[in-house]
Design a protein around this nucleic acid. Structure first.
Lengths: 230, 230
DNA sequence: TCTAATATTTAGCCATGCCTAATCTTTATG
DNA sequence: CATAAAGATTAGGCATGGCTAAATATTAGA
């Protein structure tokens, strides 16, 4: 189906390197080893292999850089991961804090056709349940700058949740407990400062969003690079 | 998620053994090796391992038998395989001749919860697109004896396609070409003998079902054991 | 700049699963 | 029942991808 011949294992390395590059960090041996929970010595061995396959450029002691080919493959993994997460949340009713580990497995299923059909089935979503952009079939990432923080919404306006800036399990669980889901429509009822930060009261029910929640939602879009859901 | 700790590789062995047992054959070294396209010597090695894990009973030169535990695991694989196939055909619009290989990968994804949610999403189907029964969450296989062959349907009656008795790619492709899909409703217009076999003309369009098709659909349910879609 | 701390690589090993060749067992046949 | 053919197992390797310990580079601090 797909032309990929890279093993699931090696794909994990490509993902780890992409994740580092996306946030502007150097893909050093130790950074990769930490991401994958392997020993640095193991990473060195794999970097040699990936380099031999022209998936990365690797100079000893200097870290790794994805080649175009390696980047394409890593982006496709990202696409698969985020489409599967979207599927699980939107269609199967998973909580968005539950889907990462399973998507981690699903993304290694090798079939171009499966993914393009899944994409169509989901209505070609541009963002996943965490609000992270889903690469399209050409590997292009949507621009998230069209999204605004909750604090930017005028009083009385109606909007809906498209994503969050942190995908820590505890935070997502917290949102679930508050009844806040992806796609939820709400009206801004009141915005006020509290304890040096914002509180936003919305019309979806009587809850006042917690301070922590608002902080997360207020964060600048550029802080997104800290959130890799890869 | 799932309690399974059996590697994908070993799972393939369990599936192969189940497939043989379901059709009443002995799970001999050579039979397994043929199913998996490995060398007999490799099978011997793996049977030792599986036996050590109490997934099979293995007596050298005597073949393998699944233990209860091994059988449960193999049945769960069958369940996953057939649910994924159903998903791909019913929801994603795949042809039923295209889904086997991908399901082969998807079935190794390890999450009980994913499968029970998928099952619910599909409406707890009892048969997959090939008409093979899908084990329920308790591992119980539905009884296919409620299905009847096309020749058993009285003239003028309406029925719908629930499955076929052969899942060879060429046959499924042939059905697709004729516009015959799972769930298709039709009315029996005419049944007649031709060249020693049956032809059935149905009201779905002007096609006369081909001799080969009719033979397949006429076969007795008990011949199902020849058809393993595992 | 020289050294100490940190990062990286090399060397040597282990486990998983596969393979071929050689050596049994079992089964089938005269 | 003896023996050949067929089937199964053991022995010895190979590739992948991990690990630890030891050696070597790089970087940071005095």
């Amino acid at each position: 189906m797909s032309s990929s011949t890279t093993s699931s294992n090696r794909q994990d390395y490509l993902k780890a390197i992409l994740s580092l590059e996306l946030r502007g960090l150097k893909a050093s041996t130790s950074a990769i080893s930490e991401k994958l929970s392997t020993q640095p010595a193991s990473v060195t061995g794999m970097l040699r292999v990936l380099s031999g396959n022209d998936l990365i450029e690797y100079i000893p002691y200097q870290g790794a850089k994805l080649t175009l080919e390696g980047r394409d493959e890593a982006i496709f993994l990202l696409r698969k991961h985020r489409l599967w997460e979207t599927f699980m949340v939107e269609k199967l009713g998973f909580g968005w804090d539950e889907v990462h580990d399973v998507a981690e497995q699903l993304e290694h299923v090798d079939s171009q056709k499966l993914i393009s059909k899944l994409d169509a089935f989901l209505g070609f979503p541009r963002f996943d349940p965490h609000g992270d952009p889903i690469p399209d079939s050409q590997g292009v990432l949507a621009d998230r700058s069209t999204l605004v923080g909750v604090n930017e919404i005028a009083l009385g306006k109606t909007a809906s949740i498209r994503g969050v800036l942190s995908s820590s399990d505890s935070f997502l669980k917290h949102l679930d407990d508050l009844g806040i889901k992806l796609g939820l429509q709400f009206t801004v009822v009141k915005v006020f400062e509290y304890d040096g930060s914002y509180q936003v009261k919305v019309g979806m029910s009587e809850e006042v969003w917690s301070k922590k929640l608002v902080e997360q939602l207020l964060a600048e879009v550029k802080s997104q690079v800290d959130n890799d859901n890869i």
